[in-house]
Design a protein around this nucleic acid. Structure first.
Lengths: 208, 208
DNA sequence: TGTACATCAGTGAACGCGCGTTCACTGATGTAC
DNA sequence: TGTACATCAGTGAACGCGCGTTCACTGATGTAC
């Protein structure tokens, strides 16, 4: 059986999660580099000093948020890229999956988009690390596809990272359209789909 | 003859520019949403209150920086996209142009990459506006190319925005490689070139 | 050209406020016997 | 099961500091005559 945490540990984890959740909510409207430790503890309802029991700084908390936002995405990425079906079907499924993920994890996605090039170095690095891992994983998945026969490793990784960046761009498009009309969101789906299709066509003719 | 500014106006513009320059330098290491007005005036060597003679807030200054960073880029974009030569030559020239621009305008490029999804709404909007204008301009240039015969307006704009985003991604790659070895920068050139080539191939076979 | 007045970019003191961090503490939970 | 001691998540007071903003000001520049 799984080990049950003691009351003390369980409560500590609960407070830690409350700090992460509160910070994520506050970060919808500002950048990590302007997020104050007191802001976060005030939102949770604990003393400012309690923060130090969990994180050394807001930058440290930011790195934890990166793990929370991207850490669980690896299996999803793998299955999406290696899915079968004709190219258009696969693209449609990928776009829909991104759309749903943005709708259900809005704050996490916004955080990643914002801090990817943000002002806090350790967080930037944590995000680049995770994205590099995604790139490797997509590359491995692409390598198994017959379409990749004759491709160099280097070109495969180039394409994999292009896909990863394209996923982020698509997520960002959906973010901007979250509060727009249904019609506008449909337009974003069409744009994202055709972008992916154009890349897919380029892939099919790469070795011509 | 051009009108010469009075001494007073000239001095005011000089101070304003000094504030913009100091802010841009400070923004290499932080986000706009954490930039303080006093930080900026301290760096320039004027009283904090002098700031209000030029900007209503740091957000207001940020919007001015967007104009400074992107406003002068429109002619450059137009000529780059509408240049002639075979596709590979054009791509090589575009990548080189981006590389040079990042090296000569590092702080401006970093500012745009950072604040495009940053925590200050008016600045985000100013950037999106400029990028949308770039998209329209690239679309107009693409429309004149025989390769675009038979393309719908919608598809042309989709491709144009894909190019614009790709330019920013490329700029961001060069930013990250600025302090790396010559070898690493050459690698970035190769990656960026092949990404563009893949998109270009997709474009050529779009109507197949 | 000289004079008298208007403009206005930049000053400097003052304000109230929230910040990050320190420290000794409390009291519930955990552990050894 | 009960007792005595250890651990440690969260507290609350205190600190020095830099922040954004206000206000009346100064003195060089501009303008009207």
């Amino acid at each position: 059986m799984s080990h049950t945490l003691g009351i003390r540990q369980a409560q500590k984890q609960k407070t830690r999660q409350a700090l992460l959740d509160a910070a994520l909510a506050l970060l919808e409207e500002q950048s990590l580099s302007s997020l104050g430790l007191r802001e976060v503890t005030r939102a949770v309802g604990v003393a400012p000093t309690a923060f130090y029991r969990h994180f050394r700084s807001t930058a440290d908390l930011g790195v934890a948020l990166v793990e929370e936002a991207l850490g669980s995405l690896h299996p999803m990425i793998r299955t999406t890229v290696s899915a079968d079906g004709d190219p258009d079907e696969r693209i449609a499924r990928a776009v829909e999956l991104i759309s749903h993920h943005v709708a259900s994890h809005t704050a996490h996605v916004r955080f990643i988009a914002r801090e990817r090039h943000g002002g806090v170095q350790p967080v930037r690095e944590a995000i680049q690390d995770q994205l590099a891992r995604f790139g490797e994983e997509v590359k491995d998945a692409l390598a198994k596809d017959p379409v990749s026969d004759g491709w160099s490793d280097d070109d495969l990784l180039m394409l994999a990272n292009l896909y990863v960046d394209q996923m982020l761009m698509t997520a960002s498009l959906f973010l901007d359209a979250l509060e727009a009309t249904e019609e506008e969101r449909a337009r974003v789906v069409r744009i994202a789909t055709r972008r992916m299709r154009l890349i897919s066509i380029g892939r099919q003719h790469w070795l011509d």
